[in-house]
Design a protein around this nucleic acid. Structure first.
Lengths: 161, 161
DNA sequence: TTCCTTGCAAACGATTTGCATTGGA
DNA sequence: TCCAATGCAAATCGTTTGCAAGGAA
C-alpha cells in the first residue's frame, strides 16, 4: 500500500521561525535584505498547498505588494535559491519554496482546472522511485541532479464535468 | 541495469507514412484538413529529438510558415490531439507528437541550456515506475490519468561550465 | 458556392525594466 | 551616508485574434 500525504504548508510556530531564519540567512549571504515585502511573499508561499502564480499571490497579499515589486521579489528569492519557479500547462509561472525548505515532493496536477497540489509520497515508495531514477543516471550522458514527477488527473470538482 | 534510449524521431519510411495517415485521419474526423503547412509542422516534430518551441520550428521551417499561421497550426494540431504542448522552465511553449503517436516517454532536461531530450526507459523499469504511480492513484482523491517524469541534469556541453 | 485556411497587422497578457524615490544598515 | 529596495509607467515578448484574401471540396 502506498500512502501519499497532501502537504498543507509549514504548520508549527517553530518550523515557521526556522524557515524565516534560513531565508534571511540565505538572502544575507548574497548581499540582499529580508525586507517586509519579501517576508510577506515567503510566508504566503510557505502556507500554500501548492505553487502560486504572481496573480494569485497578488490577490492573497491584498495589494500589500504592487505587481512589479512582486515580480522583482519573486526574482530575487528565486535567484537566491529560496523559491523554485515552474510553469504549469497554462504557461503561467508558479512559485513555491525550494525543496531544501519545503522538502522533496511531487505534484498532483488537475487537467481540468490546472490546480496543483504538493504531495509527498511515503518514504518507501519514494526510495524505490529514486533508486530507479538513479539507475537511469548511470546510462545517460547527463550529470543528473534531480527529478520531478507530475501525476495528472482530475480533482473531485473537475471529475464530474 | 536500466537502459534508456534517446529517441531520435521516426526513422523508417513505413512508420513515417503510418504517422502521416493517422494524423490525416484524426484531423479529418474533426472536420479539419491535413494541409501542407500542417504536414510540414508535423514532420518537423516527428523528426526532432525533443519538444520544439514555435520559434525553433519557425527557423527549422525556414519561413515556409509565417509565425501566426504556425501558432494556428500548432493550436489545431493540439486541439485534435495530434500534438502535446508543454512549458519548460523558461515558460515557453514547446510541442511534440502526442504519446499515441510518439510512444510513452519521459524527458531529460538540461538545467544549463534548457535543452529537452525525449527518453524511453526500458520496459521493465517503466513498468515498475508505472505500478508505483498507479498505487498512488489508489490513495489520492484524484482520477489519475497519467504521469510525467522529468529528469534534470546537465548535458555534456553545460556540465563543463 | 461554401467552408476551411492563410497571412498580415493589431491586440493581449504575463513579465521585465528605466528611472526617480524611499528606506534600512 | 550609501547602496539596496520600491513603485510607477513604459517597454518586451510570446502568443492570440480580427479581418480580408486564397484554396480545396
Amino acid at each position: 500500500m502506498v500512502l501519499i500525504i497532501i502537504l498543507a504548508g509549514m504548520s508549527t510556530a517553530s518550523s515557521d521561525h526556522d524557515t524565516e531564519r534560513l531565508i534571511a540567512a540565505r538572502l544575507g549571504a548574497g548581499g540582499s535584505r529580508y525586507t517586509s515585502a519579501r517576508r510577506l511573499v515567503a510566508r504566503a508561499l510557505a502556507q500554500s498547498t501548492g505553487p502560486q502564480s504572481a496573480t494569485e499571490l497578488l490577490s492573497s497579499l491584498e495589494g500589500a505588494v504592487p505587481l512589479s515589486s512582486l515580480y522583482r521579489t519573486l526574482g530575487v528569492l528565486e535567484e537566491a535559491g529560496v523559491l523554485a519557479r515552474e510553469h504549469g500547462s497554462d504557461g503561467i509561472a508558479r512559485y513555491e519554496l525550494a525543496e531544501w525548505l519545503a522538502g522533496h515532493h511531487h505534484h498532483l496536477v488537475c487537467t481540468g482546472c490546472g490546480e496543483v497540489l504538493d504531495i509527498a509520497i511515503d518514504p518507501d515508495t519514494e526510495t524505490k522511485i529514486a533508486s530507479l531514477i538513479d539507475h537511469i543516471a548511470g546510462s545517460a550522458d547527463y550529470a543528473v541532479s534531480g527529478h520531478r514527477i507530475d501525476i495528472e488527473g482530475r480533482c473531485t470538482t473537475c471529475v464530474e464535468t
